[in-house]
Write a protein that binds this DNA or RNA. Structure first.
Length: 425
RNA sequence: GGAGAGGUGGCCGAGUGGUUGAAGGCGCAGCACUGGAAAUGCUGUAUAGGGGCAACUCUAUCGAGGGUUCGAAUCCCUCUCUCUCCGCCA
């Protein structure tokens, strides 16, 4: 959420900042509302102050048991009642204005960072780094072909259980998934991350706090009988973990690593990536999350990204880093580095992690603060996958495939998986 | 799901209608004392939004919302969360 005060004081500046997203944001209505609520608020406090004084006066007279002037007494009561009516009206007005403002405010995305490259869509994202040697081999099989051949997962039966875009992992496939989760958690744990396993169901407040609501309600699954949703990413419960808290500046940064299943409706992606492990309604993910001192968040962003990269390096998967341009940034993010892993079968890089610095955007929505010199301010939040498990498995299957149809397991993963090769049996 | 108990400041805990934003304690910070520390003493210590260059000041907030009243942490209603017992269950 953007700062209401900033919109009130300099709407043009805010519009200009937002316009880098490649759209025009018309804030004059919101601006008027913020002026109006301030005016209302001042009037309201004045009346409240008056009413409070009067009540105290009445109280004093009452306690002295001074019955000598009942007329004055009643006159004062009338006056107080009069004030009360005015106050009540203003309170309603203020509440309505507040609702309207919040409504608009919650729909505004974060400012793109000045450091984010300018651009309107993903074609203008900038590659800033490449690691490893992307291989192109003849007769390259897709990971879903490999998976089918080796009986690692079954998507047909899964659609019987649920619907399309669900997967059942089988045998070595299931074991590989588990090995990857443990490998990633251990690796991050050793770097000082605190491990969390958060709830998979989250309430509307939590989704609003991290930016999924109110704008993107059609992207998550909702439980019909409760105010609960299936979490689309651990970013949601991790943000909400410290909701309404003031965190000691000396304890920052807080670094969390969380394993969680993620659920996404993938509305609007019909026909895209219908096969394999790339785009599922349910997938596993290990998420990195930092609560940072505002002045350190840029550094933290680099660190978090490199911690996610480290998983790809250890797994010997070729990847590149993309600096997302201003027009392609996610709603809550001010700057994002995507990690894209090489998938030989499609001869392209696919997103496997998205590392974002949200600045104080989520912290303001979730009211998470810290204190510097007795002044409280919103801290900064950062998140990134470290990594998406299903896509990592896809990358391992494709990059590790051998001529005989077996798959080589990266050395770092062998202790977790238990063998160096997946072959048909 | 049934029955009961309860949600007060960073924490514990008092407070059943009138200067209560809230006693007391703990914790924390500063100062004094000390060679240094402990102990002790004094002072300070919520959040948000207004006004003021500032000292300061106004308003709101005792789980949330509504009601009664000139006045509510305190009374009434609704919701919510936590705890205990029973039932059920991994």
């Amino acid at each position: 959420m953007l700062d209401q005060k900033l919109i009130r004081e300099d709407p043009t500046f805010v519009e200009k900042k937002l316009s880098r997203r490649g759209k025009t944001f018309e804030l004059s209505n919101l601006h008027q509302l913020t002026l109006k609520i301030k005016e209302t608020d001042i009037e309201l406090s004045n009346l409240q102050s008056e009413s409070k004084k009067l009540s105290k006066l009445i109280g004093e007279i009452y306690q002295q048991n001074n019955d000598s002037a009942p007329d004055d007494f009643n006159k004062m009561k009338d006056q107080a009642n009069n004030l009360k009516a005015k106050i009540s009206n203003l309170e309603i007005k203020k509440r309505d204005l507040n609702k309207e403002i919040l409504n608009e405010l919650l729909k505004l995305p974060n400012f793109p960072s000045d450091k984010s490259p300018s651009g309107n869509d993903e074609s203008q994202n900038v590659e800033i780094k490449k690691w490893g040697n992307p291989t192109i081999v003849n007769n390259q099989k897709s990971h879903w072909e490999i998976g089918e051949n080796l009986n690692l997962f079954d998507s047909k039966r899964s659609s019987k259980i649920s619907k399309s875009r669900f997967i059942t992992l089988i045998g070595d496939g299931a074991r590989l998934e588990r090995a990857l989760i443990n490998f990633m958690l251990d690796t991050h744990f050793k770097k000082g991350y605190l491990e969390l396993i958060p709830p998979a169901l989250v309430n509307s407040d939590s989704l609003q706090g991290s930016g999924q609501l109110p704008k993107f309600s059609n992207e998550s699954f909702k439980c019909s009988d409760d105010d609960l949703w299936l979490s689309p990413t651990a970013e949601v419960p991790l943000t909400a973990f410290h909701k309404d808290e003031i965190i000691d500046i000396n304890k920052l940064p807080l670094k969390y690593v969380a394993y969680s299943p993620c659920f996404r409706r993938e509305a609007g992606s019909y026909g895209k990536d219908t096969k394999g492990l790339i785009r599922l309604h349910q997938f596993n993910k290990v998420e990195l999350y930092w609560f940072s001192d505002p002045k350190d968040s840029s550094e933290a962003h680099k660190k978090l990204t490199s911690d996610a990269e480290d998983i790809l390096k250890k797994l010997e998967l070729p990847y590149r880093v993309i600096d997302i341009c201003s027009g392609d940034l996610g709603f809550s993010s001010s700057r994002t580095f995507d990690l894209e892993v090489w998938l030989p079968s499609s001869k392209m890089y696919r997103e496997i992690s998205s590392c974002s610095n949200c600045l104080d955007f989520q912290a303001r929505r979730s009211s998470i603060r810290t204190k510097i010199d007795k002044k409280s301010l919103f801290l900064h939040t950062l998140n990134g996958s470290g990594l998406a498990i299903g896509r990592t498995m896809a990358a391992i299957l494709e990059n590790g495939q051998q001529k005989d149809g077996s798959v080589k397991i990266p050395d770092a993963l062998i202790p977790y998986f238990g063998s160096s090769l997946i072959k048909s049996n």
